[in-house]
Design a binder for these strands. Structure first.
Lengths: 212, 212
DNA sequence: GTCTATACGATGATAGAC
DNA sequence: GTCTATCATCGTATAGAC
């Protein structure tokens, strides 16, 4: 290769721009301009604009998903030793805490978190499916783990509540640092630790409440 | 006018296409094609593509917001007569039930609900601000009503929980009829009545749980 | 007032030279 | 591996017909 890490520079520039301006609102000329690469380099390294997006997702999502699954597996293994179901709060923490902490894991990570938070609301089927392909196995495992934690809950109620959790987390991920309509005098804490606690209290109560 | 309601046909076509394909993925040529109007009709009636989107939002959102605010005001007025705070569940129901019922209010309404559900996750600042301009006063009123219902709750906790509610509702709005990864044997009910009950149980429990 | 025809610069994508 | 040239299509703008 002649240039050092053209591929990495393209990924970095695409991640930042897709998060800041949106996928459809970002031109390949803007990406290659910021990465100081030629327009056709995207075609060469990735194949298309959509394949570039998939690479942006995969680079950070694959290790994050491994971490989230490992933590959920750990909670369930410990519970099996006691012979009792895992606590709902422990399952949710294993899923949520790495997600929120990820924002503090280095340059570009905050932009990436916003990008992921928006992905499920993406109108474009192709793009949403690229993202779903990377996270759906993990969602299934979370579903399975929650079924484990809440053995008495009807299947369809659990299914909806799972999506309530995912929806809340997605919204918080794209909200971080971008509040609308802050009332005067309110300056909510945004560090991963506080936010994890606040989310866990709220979601655990919602997951565990008896249904009519 | 020569053609019957060119403006309405443009709004109908834009609503359907923006919801189905996304705003940036929908060309004005597609809109005017479906509406059987000339390309320049958008410029003539609305001024720009973004102004067309604002008109699509406003047409249905203004009456819906009036309904939601009226119902919240009614709950608070009744509570004042008893001299006690309104119930959290009643405030949330006043906000959520009209939103979910709206989906069944006629042709095009379901597409519109998805469009609104995605709006807060919209990456484009201009578009998100168009939407926020139409809903922020209502969000503030919901915030105020929940402060009323939960007088002991710290301001910053209430602020976050308000956003948890909005995030959950947004996600459900864009999910309706578009599930990913349905496990076999689960066919969740999607009618407004059942969904309202499920959401209310979950969100009320989360709003009312004591915070550490 | 309402609508049509047409043109302009910029975009995503590609083919093929080097 | 990298770059130039080219293409259809995009949002927008304008001039003018009815």
């Amino acid at each position: 290769m002649s240039q050092p890490d053209t591929k990495q520079r393209l990924l970095d520039a695409a991640e930042r721009l897709f998060a800041a301006e949106g996928f459809h609102n970002t031109s390949l000329r803007a990406v290659t301009g910021e990465a100081e690469a030629n327009l056709a380099a995207v075609k060469y390294y990735f194949g298309s604009k959509e394949a570039l997006l998939e690479a942006v997702f995969a680079r950070r999502l694959v290790p994050l998903n491994t971490l989230r699954r490992d933590r959920m597996e750990e909670v369930r293994a410990l519970a099996r030793q006691t012979g009792r179901p895992p606590a709902t709060a422990d399952i949710l923490r294993a899923f949520i805490e790495p997600t929120l902490r990820f924002r503090e894991s280095g340059p570009g990570a905050e932009a990436f978190v916003r990008l992921v938070g928006r992905a499920l609301a993406e109108p474009d089927d192709t793009i949403r499916k690229i993202f779903l392909g990377l996270v759906e196995p993990l969602f299934r495992y979370l579903h399975e783990s929650l079924t484990d934690a809440l053995p008495g809950m009807p299947q369809d109620v659990l299914f909806w509540r799972l999506h309530f959790v995912i929806g809340t987390l997605s919204h918080i991920m794209c909200l971080c640092g971008h509040f609308h309509g802050l009332p005067p005098g309110v300056s909510p804490s945004t560090d991963a630790g506080s936010l994890t606690t606040l989310l866990l209290d709220f979601l655990t109560a919602g997951m565990e409440v008896p249904c009519a």
